[in-house]
C-alpha cells in the first residue's frame, strides 16, 4: 500500500519532466510545429497534383470512374491541336507581359512608399485593396469597366474628347486590346503582393550603405543599380517566382473577362484545361494540358531560388 502511494507522484512527475523535456527539444518541437502546414500542403496541393499526373496518363472522363493507362497519348494529342498551341503562346505572352509590368511597377511603388509623406498609410491601404478583395468580385468589376456597352473608360475618353462621341473602344473584342486588358487586370491583382515583398526587402537594406554612397556622391541611379538592386535580388526573385507561377497557372481573370476570346486569342493553358477537362468532360486531356508546363515551371522555380540564394549577402 505504501509502495503504491509512494510511486504515483513519482510517475506523474516523470511524465511532466518527459513532456517538458520534449517541449524544449528542437528536434521534436520544430517538426511538431510545422506538421499542420505540411499536412495541409500534402492534402490540398500534393494529393491533387499527383492525382492530376495519374489522370493525365489515363483515359478518364468526367462521367467514368474506371481509367485505363494510355501512356503519353493525351500529351501527344493535345500538342497536335491548334487550340493548344495558340493557348501555349498566349500563356507566355500573358505571363511574361504581366510579370515585367509587375516588377517595374512594384519597384516604383515600393520606392515611393519607402519615403515618409503625409497620408502614407492611406496610400498603402489603397495599394493593398486589390489583394484583399476576392479576385472574382474584383474581376467582375473590371468586366463592367471594360463592357462594350457601358464601359466607363469609353465614357471618360468621350467626355475628355479623346475619342469621338459615338466611338467606342471594344476592350474585350479586339485581340490586342483584350490581351492588354487581361494583362492589366492581372497586374492590378498581383501588384500589391509584389509591392509588399519588395518593400520588405528595401526596408532590410542597412541605411549606412546608402549613407556611405551618399558621401561618395552617388546619384539616384547608382544607388539603385549598384546597391539597391543587388541587395534586393533575393527578395525580388521570390516575388517574381510567385508572380510567374500565378500567371502560368491561374485562369480567374481570363474566365471572367473573355473566356478565351476573341476567337481564342486570350485562351491560356489553365483556361483551356478547364474548358476541356471540367466543362467538356475529358478529364484526362484537361489534366495533360494543365501539366504541360510543369517541367518548365519546376526548372524556373529551381533557377530563381538558386539565383536568390547565390545573391544573398550574409
Amino acid at each position: 500500500m505504501k509502495l503504491v502511494q509512494g510511486t504515483a507522484p513519482v510517475k506523474v512527475a516523470s511524465r511532466r519532466v518527459t513532456f517538458a523535456h520534449l517541449r524544449d527539444r528542437e528536434e521534436w518541437l520544430g517538426p511538431l510545429m510545422i506538421a499542420p502546414a505540411i499536412l495541409y500542403i500534402v492534402l490540398v496541393v500534393g494529393f491533387p497534383f499527383f492525382l492530376a499526373i495519374y489522370y493525365s496518363f489515363s483515359d478518364i472522363t468526367l462521367g467514368s470512374r474506371s481509367l485505363g493507362f494510355v501512356g503519353l497519348k493525351n500529351f501527344a494529342a493535345v500538342f497536335g491541336n491548334t487550340n493548344f498551341r495558340t493557348a501555349l503562346w498566349n500563356t507566355f505572352v500573358f505571363a511574361v507581359g504581366s510579370q515585367l509590368l509587375v516588377l517595374v511597377l512594384a519597384n516604383m511603388l515600393a520606392l515611393a512608399l519607402l519615403k515618409d509623406f503625409r497620408g502614407k498609410w492611406f496610400f498603402r491601404l489603397l495599394i493593398l485593396l486589390p489583394w484583399v478583395a476576392p479576385i472574382s468580385l474584383g474581376t467582375i468589376g473590371w468586366l463592367w469597366i471594360l463592357d462594350s456597352t457601358y464601359s466607363v473608360i469609353n465614357w471618360t475618353l468621350q467626355a475628355l474628347r479623346i475619342i469621338g462621341p459615338k466611338a467606342r473602344l471594344i476592350w474585350l473584342g479586339v485581340p490586342y486590346l483584350a490581351m492588354g486588358s487581361i494583362i492589366t487586370v492581372h497586374v492590378w491583382r498581383l501588384l500589391p503582393l509584389a509591392t509588399v515583398i519588395i518593400l520588405a526587402g528595401l526596408s532590410s537594406i542597412p541605411r549606412d550603405i546608402h549613407d556611405a554612397a551618399q558621401v561618395d556622391g552617388a546619384s539616384f541611379w547608382r544607388h539603385y543599380f549598384q546597391i539597391t538592386m543587388p541587395l534586393l535580388l533575393p527578395v525580388a526573385m521570390v516575388a517574381l517566382l510567385f508572380g510567374v507561377v500565378f500567371a502560368f497557372t491561374d485562369m480567374t481573370v481570363i474566365y471572367v473577362l473573355t473566356r478565351g476570346g476573341p476567337y481564342d486569342t486570350t485562351q491560356v493553358l489553365a483556361s483551356l484545361a478547364f474548358f476541356t477537362g471540367v466543362v467538356g468532360g475529358d478529364t484526362a486531356e484537361g489534366a495533360a494540358i494543365s501539366l504541360y508546363l510543369f517541367p518548365l515551371l519546376l526548372a524556373v522555380a529551381i533557377a530563381f531560388l538558386r539565383i536568390a540564394r547565390r545573391s544573398e549577402v550574409t
Binding site: 463592357d147 462594350s148 456597352t149 476592350w171 479586339v174 476573341p262
Partner: peptide, 17 residues
Amino acid sequence: PEVFSWDASSNNRAMIA
C-alpha cells in the same frame, strides 16, 4: 467588333439599351 467580346447577357443589355 463588340460581338467578339460578348457574354451570354451582353445581347440582352445591348438590346434593352
